[in-house]
């Protein structure tokens, strides 16, 4: 029994980190209408920046704030240098996808070249609790709480602030949004900043909870993207539900399969959903 509780807990914890990645990703997807595959590499970049700042002795609070700011500026710079010229040329979503995969490899390799291939970890004190026979650390409680506070905050931001409404208008209908005076380029910059800021938080949490390695970005985007696809890419709450589902399935799945198959489970889910239910669990027919 306690093993089941532990697996479900593990699934929810990692699933909530995936949810953060998926939310940033699907926000960007909804406003810009293309798959920003390098989003996972922004998570990895943030994790390494965070590691560096901690190593420099800046302390936890300052490192967290700086990492989020750097990540969100980084996202805006990516959009500005790579995606904006392509959009100007009216390149198709497939071309933008290819560019984003190229960007992902570029960032992953840059991290590998600068930081080295060895696995890094950030040391923190982390007391362990016992919950229904499962072991949960203090950090894991903080992760779940923080992710849900952030997502609720994001929900209110999108629903009730002027900027959030303007973003949703651009997502719904770019042309009409322009006629009422919303500058789409500005919205793209903002959405990349917000999405990458969320990626920054995800990078910090992953860096604290797991280890850092150069390829971590690929794994993060696959999980986040799978979560977003399962939940329906156009729905942010759906992405959250989908990501929790991915976290649960891959953790419960290792009851039957060797743990090496953890990643394969996510890929198989992704493949099945893209083929048969591309609009997600809650969406209609393609």
């Amino acid at each position: 029994m306690s093993v089941a509780v532990q697996l479900i807990m593990n699934g929810l914890i990692i699933g909530s980190i995936y949810a953060l990645v998926a939310t940033g990703f699907s926000l960007i997807y909804n406003v810009t209408k293309f798959v920003h595959f390098a989003h996972g590499s922004v998570v990895a970049f943030a994790a390494y920046i965070f590691y560096l700042l901690i190593k420099l002795g800046l302390g936890l609070p300052l490192s967290i704030i700086l990492t989020i700011i750097i990540a969100s500026i980084f996202g805006a710079v990516i959009d500005w240098i790579v995606y904006r010229p392509l959009r100007k040329r009216k390149a198709s979503a497939a071309v933008l996808l290819i560019a984003s995969i190229g960007l992902m490899i570029l960032l992953n390799s840059a991290i590998l070249a600068v930081a080295g291939a060895d696995v890094k970890s950030i040391p923190i004190t982390n007391p362990v609790f016992d919950v229904w026979g499962a072991r949960i650390t203090q950090l894991q409680v903080i992760i779940i709480a923080m992710v849900f506070l952030l997502l609720i905050g994001l929900y209110f931001f999108m629903k009730h602030t002027k900027l959030g409404k303007a973003m949703r208008a651009t997502a719904d209908n770019n042309a009409v949004a322009q006629t009422v005076g919303i500058n789409p380029q500005k919205m793209y910059t903002y959405v990349f900043m917000i999405g990458s800021g969320l990626a920054g938080v995800a990078g910090i949490l992953v860096g604290l909870e797991q280890n850092l390695f150069p390829e971590m970005g690929t794994s993060m985007i696959i999980k986040g993207f799978t979560g977003a696809v399962i939940g329906g890419m156009s729905s942010v709450p759906g992405s959250v539900a989908g990501s929790l589902f991915v976290g649960l399935v891959e953790n419960i799945g290792i009851w039957w399969l060797p743990s090496g198959y953890k990643d394969a489970i996510a890929f198989a889910l992704l493949f099945v959903f893209l083929l048969f239910k591309p609009k997600g669990m809650f969406g209609g027919k393609s």
Binding site: A94, G260, A264, F267, F271, L274, L275
Partner: peptide, 24 residues
């Protein structure tokens, strides 16, 4: 039946699945 970026992503998923099988 898929086109454009959806086809790209599904076939990319296929590459990942093959890699996972080879590893496991």
């Amino acid at each position: 039946k898929l086109r454009g970026d959806y086809l790209a992503l599904a076939t990319l998923g296929f590459t990942f699945i093959c890699g996972s099988i080879a590893r496991n």
